[in-house]
């Protein structure tokens, strides 16, 4: 008797488990394994943690790694302080019952999200181009030409500019998630608040915001994972060398250059895997902190 119910569970789970194992789990563990080898003349051999010692011990490798990690953190911070508050604000505005054309705004804001990185990178590069771009012209029209700088070419602005481009592209996602969360707040709760004298902004801060906090948590963790895995936009806009002077180099581009090689630099899959492993550990740590440190507390808070 005990065997029968189990067998059908296994059969139903099998397709998903097999596919997921083949395309996700197996490559992931293989990457972790690859990082423990080095390639020498005549093949590769096991080298323990030698790649990690190089990555963190060699002054050049570690400088590149910490530079990339630092840039990644800044990229994430910009998303957290610009993208998510704007997303929440947009959702709050869109869920206002008296707003007209809200469906149109919703689509318009969401559309960039479905565009390819290559198109976004290329379009923004053209918009911001000091030679053909419309940005210098538009600033000139309002007499602010002096504010224009070749942002993507300046070490001090390039990363922030790219982060804001990414925010422009993805602001639709937090907006949609929060919008859905706001719609699911039962009317009775709001009415009860109204009877107690909570209206307008006070209702938002005291009732809606606490109720959408779990969604904000989910968005934060999605942003975190997405940002620390980011690569495409930087690659499309600045190339694999993540210029100027590596100021836009994030872990993804650093990994790409190391793994696949660049120009005369030959690829080193083992060192690349070591960087990938470091990225995996960073993301895993972040997600764990969220799951145990924040989400558990949030659930308690709700009840």
């Amino acid at each position: 008797m005990a065997g029968r119910p189990r067998s059908h569970i296994i059969i139903f789970l099998a397709p998903a488990v097999l596919v997921y194992t083949a395309v996700m789990i197996w490559p992931l563990f293989n990457t972790l394994r690859l990082s423990l080898y080095v390639s020498e003349a005549g093949g590769r051999h096991f080298a323990g943690l030698a790649n990690f010692r190089t990555l963190f011990g060699d002054p050049r490798w570690s400088a590149s790694f910490w530079n990339a990690l630092g840039n990644n953190v800044w990229f994430f911070i910009i998303h957290m302080i610009v993208q998510n508050p704007i997303g929440i604000a947009l959702a709050a505005i869109l869920s206002h019952p008296r707003l007209r054309f809200s469906a149109f705004y919703r689509s318009a804001i969401f559309i960039p999200t479905i565009l390819s990185f290559v198109i976004v990178g290329f379009a923004w590069k053209l918009i911001l181009s000091p030679i053909w771009g419309i940005a210098p012209g538009m600033l000139d029209a309002v007499g602010l030409k002096s504010l224009f700088a070749p942002w993507l070419g300046k070490e001090e602005y390039a990363l922030t500019t790219l982060a804001l481009i990414s925010v422009w592209q993805f602001v639709g996602i937090p907006m949609m998630l929060i919008y859905a969360a706001l719609l699911s707040i039962p009317e009775e709760v709001l009415e009860a608040g109204e009877i107690d004298g909570l209206t307008g902004w006070a209702a938002f801060w005291k009732i809606k915001l606490p109720l959408i906090l779990p969604s904000i948590g989910i968005i934060s963790i999605l942003t975190f994972v997405g940002n620390f895995n980011a690569f495409d936009l930087i690659y499309a806009a600045q190339g694999a060398l993540a210029g100027p002077n590596f100021s836009t180099d994030i872990l993804g581009t650093f990994l790409y250059r190391t793994f696949f090689g660049f120009q005369l630099q030959l690829g080193d899959p083992h060192m690349g895997s070591a960087i990938a492993t470091a990225m995996f550990v960073i993301i895993l740590t972040g997600v764990c902190i969220y799951l145990w440190g924040i989400q558990t507390r949030m659930r308690r808070y709700q009840f």
Binding site: S129, P130, I131, P150, W151, G153, K154
Partner: peptide
């Protein structure tokens, strides 16, 4: 070099 050569491709 031209204006904004830093971002010139």
């Amino acid at each position: 070099l031209g204006d904004g050569y830093e971002a010139q491709t």
